[in-house]
């Protein structure tokens, strides 16, 4: 019995050590980003390519999920609001929920699954097949070419995808409302726009830059540190999704607290 307790304690200590080690290494990896991003040469072509891959190619997924988010939120909220005779508040409530919380978090989580794992697998595979080493021995900075471009692209594209998901979600909400009643689009949009203020949009959009940064950074870190053959490529991809998703929730929690204090 005692041995089991000791073994469990040891495994918890090892897990905690690994976690803190990871946090420390990701921090150092991120600090390097700020040093490298300002130094020339600038890999503009690769950055644009990554924006296309991360942003444009995620549009179908974000469109579908954004639409479903708005539709389902409307359908689920409607009965509760109807009980209190507040059905007319449905457009405002859906728009505020989407813009302030649901669209940023869900879109970021979807991108953590699609983008972060993709980057983790791609760079992991490049690492184990010595492609990253090949760049380094050719006197090309692989961090600058692979990491800086991808992290910049995710930092820029995730907020744009979230804004797009906000719009699509609001359209989904309109469809949801019209399943049970007949509301004019102009009236629906007027009510939505009346209820939204700058202070709803600004903090919600600001946090998405952090979501984007960490989605890219964690994917790159996991890929860059893949070792021991092809098995580690899968591990890097999996670990990137888990860590990025967890980081999104932590950032969201902090962002809500800070928003609460200042806005």
């Amino acid at each position: 019995m005692n041995n089991i307790v000791i073994a469990k304690k040891e495994s918890i200590i090892i897990y905690l050590k690994e976690t803190f080690n990871d946090v420390g290494n990701i921090t150092l990896f991120s600090i390097r980003f700020f040093k490298e991003v300002i130094r020339s040469p600038y890999e503009i072509k690769e950055f644009i390519k990554q924006c296309y891959v991360i942003g444009y190619k995620s549009l179908p997924l974000v469109t579908i999920t954004g639409f479903i988010m708005g539709l389902v939120l409307t359908l689920q909220s409607r009965p509760t609001l109807a009980k209190f005779g507040a059905e007319s508040w449905l457009p405002s409530m859906v728009a505020l929920s989407l813009i302030r919380e649901i669209a940023p978090v869900i879109t970021a989580l979807i991108c953590a699954g699609k983008v972060s794992s993709g980057i983790g697998a791609e760079l992991g595979s490049m690492k184990v097949t010595e492609q990253i080493d090949a760049m380094e021995v050719s006197a090309i900075n692989p961090y600058k070419y692979l990491v800086v471009t991808r992290v910049l692209a995710t930092t820029l594209m995730i907020p744009l995808l979230v804004i797009y998901a906000d719009g699509i979600g609001i359209i989904g909400g309109y469809v949801g409302i019209n399943i049970h009643s007949d509301v004019n689009l102009y009236r629906y949009l007027s009510q939505v726009l009346e209820s939204i203020t700058f202070l709803d949009i600004f903090p919600a959009t600001l946090k998405t830059f952090f979501f984007g940064f960490f989605i890219g950074m964690i994917g790159c870190y996991k890929g860059f540190n893949a070792v021991n053959g092809t098995e580690s490529v899968g591990k890097a991809a999996n670990s990137a999704v888990v860590t990025a998703s967890l980081t999104i929730f932590i950032i969201d929690m902090l962002a809500v607290q800070i928003t609460d204090l200042f806005f």
């Binding site: 791609e122 490049m126 097949t129 010595e130 492609q131 080493d133 090949a134």
Partner: peptide, 9 residues
């Protein structure tokens, strides 16, 4: 490199 390490993409 042993496996040539060509850039796959």
């Amino acid at each position: 490199f042993q496996n040539a390490a060509l850039y796959d993409s």
